[in-house]
Structure formats: C-alpha cells, structure tokens
C-alpha cells in the first residue's frame, strides 16, 4: 500500500507540474464576429471560408445556465466547427453574464426581446422571411416558446436536450425543484442567483463524479492532449454565470413546479403559448443517458407540437456528450446538417 500511495502522489505531483506549465487553456476558437449587441447580449456570426450549402441561416439559442463555449470546446472536436464544415451558416446568441442590473430581466425580455431581435436582424441581413432555430437545453425551451408565438419567422426548428415536460418523477432536478422555495432563494441572493448555487445542484446528480475525475487525473495527465481536454472541460464547468433572478424564479415556478408549458397554460407577453402553433418541421434531439434532462422530459414535445414533418433523434450518450466528443461528430452533427439541408428549399 505504502508504495502504491507514494506512486500515486508522485504521478499526481507530475500532473500538477504539467498543469502549471500550461499558459492558456483555449476554448471557443472558431473564428467569429459580433454582428449585433444589446448590453451584455451579443449575436455572433461564425466565419465560413466557403458559401454555405444551406441558404437559410441557423440561429443557436443556448441556455442561460453555463456558457455556450461548450459547443466549441476542443478545436478538433467542435460542434460548431463541424456544423460549419457540414455546410451551415451559424449565428449564436451569447447571453453574457447576468449581474445586479439584470435582476429584473424577465423571460419576456430574453424571448420576446433578445431572441426576437436576433431573428429579425438575421432575417433583414439575409433578406429572408424565415430562419432556422436551434435551441440547446433551456435555450431549446425558449426556442419552442418563440416558435409557437412567431411561427411565421421560423423555417425549421431543432431542439437539443430540451426540457418540456417537467413532471417531478422525471429526475432528481425535477424533484428537488419541486421542493425548492424559489422566492426565498431569489430574494435571499438579492435577485441574482449565483452560478455556484446551480452548479452544486448539478454536481449532486452524480455525487461521486468529481472523486472519480480526480482519481483518474494522474493517468489523464500523462497525455498532453487528454490533459488539455480535461482542463478545457474544467474551465467550462467552472465558468458558470449567475442567473437573472426574475427569469430564474419564473422558470422554476412555471416549468419545474407547475409544468405549464406542456399543459398549454404558460403565458408570455400577455399571450398564452400553445405548442400546437408550431407547424414548421421539427427535429427533437435527446440523449439516451441524459441525467440532467432525461428523455422522459424531452420526448413529450413530439406529440405536443402541431407539425406534420417531425422527427425524434436519439443520441447514444449523455447531456454534454451531445455537443462534446467524437460520437457527436460522427452521429449527430452530420444528421442535423442533413436534416436542415433537406428542408432548405421552398
């Protein structure tokens, strides 16, 4: 045992030495430019070397939880770079970091304000009436709401690992949110819910993940590439923005606690949101082993929408695996691009 432990400590020390030599952990390296901004919110347009195969541009609406860089984490296995390679023209909304000034920013502001303005901006820029919308996780929920209010603006809709049915038996997060006093939490935190608070909840879903990760670190650290990817993921995980209190409050109450969206009871901007209004083609991507947004919470959207052309696509992996790693590159990105290119004509 004694020898084994000394060996572990030595490898761990070497690993830490390696880490200390690294100057920068590069993520989000795909070239892009900011084409529109409003305060903290920025709209990026990713640069292409060749004309896109699909004429209709794609707007990516990411979640407010965690940062979009996850979609461009490793330069060689980037979800966004791969979609570009497959011939899509990609825009993405960066929500920025909410702080005190955003404590009263509402879901109306995010959806009817930011998303709507970005959609209109892209429509004007490309002189098209409709664009494609790709929603990620919570950003997918926002996309569904948007598409049901403004179906005339959306040509094709893709939701990836998007929670729609928030029944408490759907998973630990759903159960916990049900027993959460969201008013006390939002007010206690002064209207800005810290990212660490959210992260501690996500961590608990797999409570031993970190122990497992550290146990394997000495092995990981022996390979520079693996170590870099480990650090890229760490960097992304640690970069967890705070949540605008009013939006968080409403998201928990209306969705996690009262499941209003799937029941057709959710209202925004004075209008009731009916998922039946969604009649454009819809691709619903869910991950088989998703422990954050399990398939039971995503699949019900398939029956709730009014579209005739709709498809369910199961990804064999977890929540993050959908966007990071080689399986995503092999199985998912080409399928998404093909689905959109097939529906690009009139």
């Amino acid at each position: 045992m004694a020898n084994e432990f000394i060996e572990y400590v030595n490898t761990a020390t070497e690993a830490l030495l390696q880490i200390s030599e690294i100057d920068e952990v590069d993520i989000a390296t795909a070239p892009r430019e900011t084409v529109w901004e409003d305060g903290k919110v920025q709209l990026y347009h990713f640069k292409r070397d060749t004309p896109a195969i699909a004429k209709t541009p794609v707007l990516v609406s990411y979640a407010l939880v965690n940062r979009w860089e996850m979609m461009d984490l490793q330069p060689n296995l980037s979800f966004i770079r791969k979609l570009l390679q497959e011939g899509l023209d990609i825009y993405l909304i960066d929500w920025g970091y909410a702080s005190g000034i955003d404590r009263y920013k509402t879901m109306d502001d995010y959806i009817l304000g930011d998303i709507h303005e970005c959609v209109e901006f892209i429509c004007r820029k490309h002189q098209v009436e409709k664009i494609n919308l790709l929603g990620v996780c919570q950003g997918g929920t926002f996309s569904l709401i948007y598409a049901s209010l403004f179906p005339e603006n959306i040509k094709n809709l893709i939701t990836t690992v998007t929670p729609v049915d928030f029944k408490e038996e759907n998973g630990l997060l759903f159960l916990w949110a049900k027993h959460m006093d969201v008013d006390a939490i939002v007010d206690g935190f002064g209207g800005v819910v810290p990212g660490d608070f959210l992260n501690s909840g996500f961590d608990l879903l797999k409570p031993m993940n970190k122990a497992r990760k550290f146990a394997n670190l000495p092995q990981v650290a022996q390979n520079k590439d693996k170590l870099m990817n480990f650090l890229r993921m760490e960097k992304w995980v640690a970069d967890s923005p705070a949540q605008a209190g009013e939006t968080y409050r409403r998201f928990i109450k209306d969705f996690y606690q009262n499941n209003k969206l799937i029941r057709g009871e959710f209202e925004i901007g004075g209008e009731k949101v009916s998922l039946k209004n969604i009649t454009m083609p819809v691709l619903t991507v869910y991950a088989k082993d998703d422990h954050i947004v399990p398939p039971v919470s995503t699949i019900p959207v398939h029956d709730a929408i009014g579209s005739k052309d709709k498809e369910l696509l199961e990804f064999p992996g977890g929540h993050i695996g959908v966007f990071v790693g080689s399986r995503s590159q092999k199985l998912l990105t080409p399928a998404i691009a093909k689905w959109l290119i097939d529906r690009d004509g009139q």
């Binding site: 916990w176 027993h179 959460m180 006093d181 939490i185 206690g188 608070f197």
Partner: peptide
C-alpha cells in the same frame, strides 16, 4: 435539501 438551500440564501440576504 430545499430547506437547506433556502436557509443558505436567507443567510446571504441577511
């Protein structure tokens, strides 16, 4: 857990 989170937030608020 709900109660614990609530207490933490209330503490911060105070």
């Amino acid at each position: 857990q709900g109660e614990l989170s609530k207490l933490a937030a209330v503490l911060k608020g105070k």
